[in-house]
Design a protein around this nucleic acid. Structure first.
Ligand code: FES
Ligand code: FES
Lengths: 148, 148
DNA sequence: TTTCATGTAACTTATGATGTTTCATAAATA
DNA sequence: TATTTATGAAACATCATAAGTTACATGAAA
């Protein structure tokens, strides 16, 4: 089942951005993530809409952090990615009036809801500055010829 | 992100099977799930490998429960589906030596592991007979012309 | 006015689950 | 023994959708 690594990638980007004095362009970020500038814009747009980053057009433009890392949590970024459920597990809906299907789905759903609640609670407890401690001077976009 | 409803579907099937006296054919189950007999065989094969169901070829053959519903848990069936992680969230691996990526992935991973542990624990607490109580006489493969 | 950047829409590609076809194998039945 | 009915398994096709790409408009700085 396909994985969504946007959360991981965006956290990584945001923390590196905190160490820069100039805005990071979509192209620069795209190279860092080994992807495409338009994909970066699409994903960063969600963060901008929530106020975590700002974007500036034109010469010298690009993306900048809009607040301190200590004011942003994993949950904030997770939520900004939109995109509903964190689980690959879904419910059947072939016989929505069958009491067995209903009972089965209810049981699964109960567990998913509880597990997701725990996950979100933990995400809320982690601010991004906690992930950056001790690495203040590590370079953004450390490209290696070996492809790292 | 795509959902995997095999767990829900198989639980539904198993509980209905418990109410039958004869084996259920792949074709019958496929109709119930609005899918293809080969898909059913593929999924049921995982359950057979773990000993929860048996399959019999030829005339009068098909699939049967190999043990009581009270001896099977949601976790058992979940595990029999194989297929690793329950989360749509993945980790980045573009810069595996970057301490920030490492710290980010570690933080996410810690949370996922804890949430998954809770989920598996809850799945282990639910035996299938608990989901069937009170519905003993509900018919398998209740086909409706309206498509239900 | 040229260059550099984001914004956005439309389109293409890649991936993986799901579905399908086909044939081999095995068991009951006539 | 021949026929019917079932699973087993491999090979292939389809579908959904996330990711990637192209193209062009917009806006800001030099
Ligand atoms: S990106 Fe964190 S270092 Fe290359
Ligand atoms: S299947 Fe549970 S009833 Fe049609």
């Amino acid at each position: 089942m396909r994985k969504d690594s946007r959360l991981s990638r965006m956290l990584h980007v945001l923390i590196h951005m905190d160490q820069l004095d100039a805005p990071a362009t979509s192209e620069k970020i795209a190279k860092m993530l080994n992807t495409n500038p338009v994909v970066v814009r699409r994903t960063m747009a969600g963060l901008r809409d929530k106020g975590y980053v700002t974007s500036v057009k034109g010469h010298g433009g690009g993306w900048s952090l809009a607040m301190a890392l200590s004011d942003i949590t994993l949950l904030d970024i997770h939520n900004a990615m939109g995109d509903s459920s964190v689980f690959t597990i879904g419910l059947s809906d072939e016989h929505t009036s069958c009491p067995i299907e209903i009972a089965v789905n209810q049981a699964i759903s109960d567990v998913l809801i509880e597990a997701e609640a725990l996950l979100l609670e933990r995400f809320r407890d982690v601010t991004l500055d906690k992930l950056a401690v001790g690495f203040a001077d590590y370079p953004l976009n450390q490209q290696t010829s070996s492809g790292e």
